[in-house]
């Protein structure tokens, strides 16, 4: 039972990190209807900046720079590439983000080489023990930070004028523009926010118990895609629930894979994708996604 609770808590913590990534993904999709396949490379950029600077200027300042840097990279992609596209087909823009992703991953991958960088976080490998249950401090920090950020984001999305503008643009871009909302700024903001959230997620994907920032961190970040889509691409609630489902599934499948050997080694990597396929079979628009209604 203790093992189960530990795995569950670990899963929830990991899931909240995935939810952070998926949230940024959903924000971009809602604001611009673009599926951003370059999201994993945004995360890699944020993590790289944090890891490189943390030795010189201290962890917290490096983290802030990393967040700002990833936000800047996101905004730059929007400003330099997305905004230049004049066509109407958004699935072509998704392919453009793939091109951006190829370039960014090649560049950061070249800088990293085979190194594994430590982000220099203050938690180290210390463990928090409550009763019989023990949990890595990094996981507790991840849960708290993600919870805080997600709450702040949802409040801002609901109550600030920026959030209202964002939701209006998602509802009907044409009407929103006529009401004086500057769509360019809305989508610029969405990309920047998504970059920032991804940088925070990068921190928690590279701290203990994972070895550090390496090339394959991008593949870990890929798990936010099933998280976003099984919740429903246009739903912030969906991103949260999807993230948690993916995190808990991964944690439980990894923890109990000794009992599931007939499914092969490395089940934890596979399980989130299987859950995604199963959910998409039942609900093609995801759990909370709006079913597409079309008026002809």
């Amino acid at each position: 039972m203790t093992i189960f609770i530990e795995l569950l808590l670990n899963g929830i913590s990991l899931g909240s990190v995935y939810a952070l990534i998926a949230l940024g993904f959903v924000v971009i999709f809602r604001a611009t209807e673009v599926v951003n396949f370059a999201h994993a490379s945004l995360l890699l950029a944020g993590g790289y900046i944090t890891a490189v600077l943390s030795d010189d200027i201290g962890f917290w300042l490096a983290l802030l720079t990393g967040i700002a840097g990833a936000a800047l990279v996101g905004a730059a992609i929007e400003f330099l590439v997305m905004r230049r596209y004049r066509g109407a087909d958004h699935s072509v823009l998704a392919i453009v983000t793939i091109g951006v992703d190829i370039m960014l991953v090649a560049d950061i991958g070249r800088r990293l080489g085979t190194d594994i960088l430590s982000v220099g976080d203050p938690w180290g490998d210390r463990v928090l023990t409550i009763g019989a249950v023990s949990l890595a401090q990094t996981r507790v920090a991840a849960l708290l930070a993600a919870g805080l950020l997600i709450t702040a984001f949802l409040l801002a999305f609901r109550y600030t004028s920026w959030g209202v503008a964002m939701r209006a643009a998602a509802e009907n871009a044409g009407t929103a523009a006529l009401m004086g909302i500057r769509l360019g700024r809305v989508s610029l903001g969405a990309w920047a926010v998504a970059g920032g959230l991804a940088a925070v997620a990068a921190l928690f994907l590279t701290v203990f118990p994972t070895p550090g920032l390496e090339k394959s961190t991008a593949q870990v970040a890929m798990k936010a895609f099933p998280a976003a889509i099984l919740g429903g691409l246009d739903s912030t609630t969906g991103a949260l629930v999807g993230g948690l489902i993916v995190g808990v599934t991964e944690s439980l499948a990894t923890g109990y894979q000794g009992d599931l050997t007939f499914l092969g080694r490395g089940l934890g990597e596979l399980a989130p994708y299987l859950v995604m396929v199963a959910i998409l079979l039942l609900r093609p628009a995801g759990l909370f996604g709006t079913k597409e209604l079309a008026r002809v």
């Binding site: 590439v81 596209y85 823009l93 453009v96 091109g99 560049d107």
Partner: peptide, 13 residues
């Protein structure tokens, strides 16, 4: 990888 990534972006735009 740089070149064909950039080519994808440039071609679409």
């Amino acid at each position: 990888a740089y070149l064909y990534g950039a080519a994808v972006v440039a071609v679409v735009l």
